[in-house]
Write a protein that binds this DNA or RNA. Structure first.
Length: 571
DNA sequence: GCCGTTTTCGGCCCGACTGTTTTCAGTCG
């Protein structure tokens, strides 16, 4: 059993224990253990064999024994029994807002509900009203939540699809029958959520390629299998399509299957005006094929420069490409430092020094620490004394690592009245302040907008953290007037965060281009709670690229010497 | 269930908000 599988089971046990109504700290122990396993780089099999699991923080005798059983036998008696006591289906019901362990167990114990489907039925039959503590309002809220989930049932977060797609491509590329092979569709366009995995290959023996694809380890079920196209359902439930074309057709097919639909339609429209027909097999003028060796040639036919896949959303890329005015998009290699990282002073699990070393290892030259502020008690928000202690430690580390720079920051809660979480004296002591909303999400649009604008006008605020508060596939952002917020940020020199956590990816790329044109600045922040999560930056870069951003638009593309004076640089 | 001890068990993640009631349990961040 792999480490990832162990982590999944530990987290499941935590959830099952919560449902069962066990002591919260007991489930927390399982989550903590899973979390700490995530960080260690050593092979879990080796740790088990050498009996060293208990050296890991948060793993004691009981958990070491359970993990050992899992790794050696692939099973765990304790987990099996737990699943018999508490049906696994109840875990998915935790995704419905307003439903927690207690209410789910009431539903299970009184009505015998074990799935979201069953819950939906009883809601529609008004059966919930008969239960104590369940009113019409609760029932409506649950139904609304179920409908939200259903809408997102066939959607996946970007990394889920990216990782799978890369592994499938690797398998295909090992086949001698595959000439070219690339990921197409929404993954190639770096969309924030995905419905399926599109793969394109070229081959002289398409049938052999189909064999490799449909018999691959990740495939659970074959929906269709033909000479040029096959569709499958993968082990995790995601759909995947492959198209196989002749090698000479590859550039045309790659463009066609990369999309988006809107981009393709607009381009076909343009082509038609010139008497040109486009499809997945070629570009045709008077029935005659115009040869292209790659996508650069493809766009060249229309007098356009190459359009990066991320921009193909019909957001003005065709017009810009014609005038040679596409942006020189930011790349991951342009990123010089990391802003918005939580240490173990609040709810992160690495020390500042560990974070510094992780940044240096990745070639970054500065790190902006931003733990939670005092209102975020659930996340171990920092008291005045802790801030003082942290700053002393940062001063010490800045001397120790003289070629690296640690900035003193805080992720300050924007309180319901729009004020920040500390008095002026404390706010003054930071190099930068990220203002974020973590409470009272359900405000009317104008009140919420004013709340945020009040924070933006606070002279100490540097960055607006996860500007809409959305959680992808789970929660809509709060209602705000983005136009007013953009204007206010620009006026007050407040930088927009592109929160790179793949479950957030907030601010949405659809807002970015217009904001940039007005003069907004951005920072790509991992919002990391461990050294590993620093890598989230790459997802933020995807979003920035989709929003047409260039190196000059991004705060943490500034180099080591510039960042010291970053306020002056931005202003 | 883990940790750190004052070594045998208490502390660990608390406070605001919501909805259902009318004083509080459950949810959420």
């Amino acid at each position: 059993m792999t480490k990832q599988e162990v982590i999944k089971i530990l987290n499941d046990i935590g959830l099952l224990l919560e449902l069962k109504g066990e002591n919260f700290f007991k489930s927390k122990a399982y989550y903590d253990a899973a979390n700490n396993l995530e960080i260690i780089e050593e092979d879990i099999g080796v740790l088990v064999n050498e009996n060293r699991l208990q050296n890991i923080k948060g793993i004691g005798k009981a958990l070491a024994q359970k993990i050992t059983e899992l790794v050696l036998t692939g099973e765990l008696e304790y987990y099996k029994n737990l699943k018999q006591e508490v049906p696994e289906g109840l875990i998915s019901m935790l995704r419905i807002p307003g439903l927690g362990p207690k209410k789910i167990m009431i539903l299970y114990n009184t009505l015998g509900i074990t799935t979201i489907e069953e819950l939906k039925k009883v809601c529609e039959n008004n059966e919930l009203l008969e239960l104590p503590k369940f009113s019409k309002k609760t029932q409506d809220k649950i139904l609304e939540g179920i409908n939200n989930i259903k809408e997102n049932l066939d959607k996946y977060h970007y990394p889920v699809g990216e990782i799978l797609a890369e592994e499938i491509i690797d398998i295909l590329k090992q086949s001698k029958y595959v000439q070219k092979c690339e990921i197409a569709g929404s993954i190639r366009r770096k969309k924030e959520v995905l419905k399926d995995i599109d793969i394109l290959a070229s081959s002289e023996k398409p049938d052999e390629v189909m064999n490799v694809f449909t018999s691959c380890y990740y495939v659970k079920e074959i929906i269709s299998r033909g000479e040029t196209k096959s569709s499958v359902i993968l082990q995790n439930g995601m759909k995947s399509d492959i198209r196989v074309v002749k090698d000479s057709q590859f550039p045309f097919a790659l463009h066609h299957f990369t999309g988006s639909k809107e981009h393709n339609t607009a381009l076909r429209h343009l082509a038609k005006k010139k008497g040109i027909k486009i499809n997945e097999y070629g570009i045709f003028k008077d029935e005659k094929l115009i040869d292209c060796k790659d996508e650069e040639d493809f766009f060249g036919v229309f007098g356009m420069e190459f359009i990066p896949p991320e921009l193909r959303e019909n957001y003005g890329e065709l017009e810009a490409a014609k005038e040679n005015k596409l942006p020189n998009l930011i790349s991951i290699n342009d990123i010089r430092g990391v802003i918005h990282v939580h240490s173990n002073y609040s709810d992160g699990n690495a020390s500042i020094e560990q974070l510094v070393q992780a940044c240096m290892k990745r070639g970054y030259t500065y790190l902006g620490i931003s733990d939670h502020s005092k209102t975020a008690i659930y996340a171990g928000g920092l008291t005045h004394d802790e801030i003082k202690r942290q700053h002393e430690e940062i001063d010490y580390l800045n001397e120790k690592y003289s070629k690296f720079q640690i900035l003193k920051g805080i992720e300050s809660d924007i309180l319901p009245d729009g004020s920040l979480d500390y008095n002026e004296k404390i706010l003054k002591s930071f190099d930068f302040i990220i203002g974020s909303i973590h409470s009272s999400f359900n405000m009317a649009e104008d009140i919420m907008t004013n709340r945020i604008i009040k924070a933006i006008t606070n002279p100490y605020m540097t960055i607006l953290g996860h500007p809409t508060g959305r959680l992808l596939l789970r929660r809509e952002g709060y209602k705000i007037n983005m136009d007013k917020i953009v204007n206010s940020c620009i006026k007050n020199n407040v930088i927009f965060e592109i929160n790179a956590n793949p479950y957030r990816l907030d601010i949405d790329w659809r807002y970015i281009k217009a904001a940039k044109e007005k003069g907004a600045k951005f920072v790509i922040s991992p919002d990391a709670h461990s050294t590993k999560e620093i890598e989230y930056i790459k997802y933020g870069v995807n979003v920035a690229r989709k929003g047409w951003l260039e190196k000059k638009d991004i705060l943490n593309a500034l180099d080591h010497s510039e960042i010291a004076n970053y306020k002056k640089v931005i202003n």
